[in-house]
Nucleic acid binder design. Sequence first.
DNA 1: CGCGCCTCCTGTGTGC
DNA 2: TGCACACAGGAGGCGC
Length: 282
Amino acid sequence: MPELPEVEVVRRGIDRWATGRPIAGVEVRYPRSIRRSPGGVAAIRDALVGDSFRCASRRGKYLWLPLTHKADLALVVHLGMSGQVLMQPRDAQDEKHLRVRIAFADDDREMRFVDQRTFGGLYLDELRSGLPTTIEHIARDPLDPLFDADATARAIRRKDTEIKRVLLDQSVVSGIGNIYADEALWRAKLHGRRPTGRLRQPRVRELLSHARDVMDAALGEGGTSFDSLYVNVNGESGYFDRSLDAYGREGEPCHRCGAPMRREAFMNRSSFRCPRCQPTPR
DNA sequence: CGCGCCTCCTGTGTGC
DNA sequence: TGCACACAGGAGGCGC
């Protein structure tokens, strides 16, 4: 489940291997994967073929690849639940869930978008002040140099809801998904259902620091290599088993106090917490 | 207006 | 053995 660290690894891979190369062709194997792209595959082809990706940018879980010559256009990439971007030799066998293929004129490895559950996709978008118009509502993420922790903490406290909901609200702070939300809450010793308005500003700042730290640590471990299978949908990536303190640890001892970790339904998904370190709010 | 639930999607695991 | 169903969850959309 790609959250910020996984997406950043993909960004670096694209930046390293796919930018500056003349694009020769686009093949869409599964139209649903470009459903958000105005004009469909024809418009993508018109824009991309003959141009090149200038760089790979990211905000939260969104990637975008601005074009070199059409400077106001970018290809936006969202991995959704199960998306992968792979650089593969042209003659490598198609992946089972290969959705889109982008070939380069220099003929050295093509870029493939592979996505089992098809929540992700690729689409063309216009840039406004360097940002795709469709992600203007996405807030800066905690690893962004311009991330304003004070302002974000204030925005969080203004919300009339529970703390985990806000951590997952990409318009308040981006890049955090279910896994890193649980990890940050565990580090901060906070229950996800704590009402935001009842948390003091320094507590919220602390929580945001933990979110940044845990994502930074995951990024440091880097997942596996970019050119083979990066994150498989079964969660078998490099760092998963090693460094998680909360997510997926139902029944296992809390790494801090030893109490058996609990799993609870929350927002139609699972939340994991320590019943002793993160007690239920009254 | 803002909060929160529903839905989309498919492979895997589990229980009967 | 095979079927049915729960589960994984990012995020847009919509109802209240």
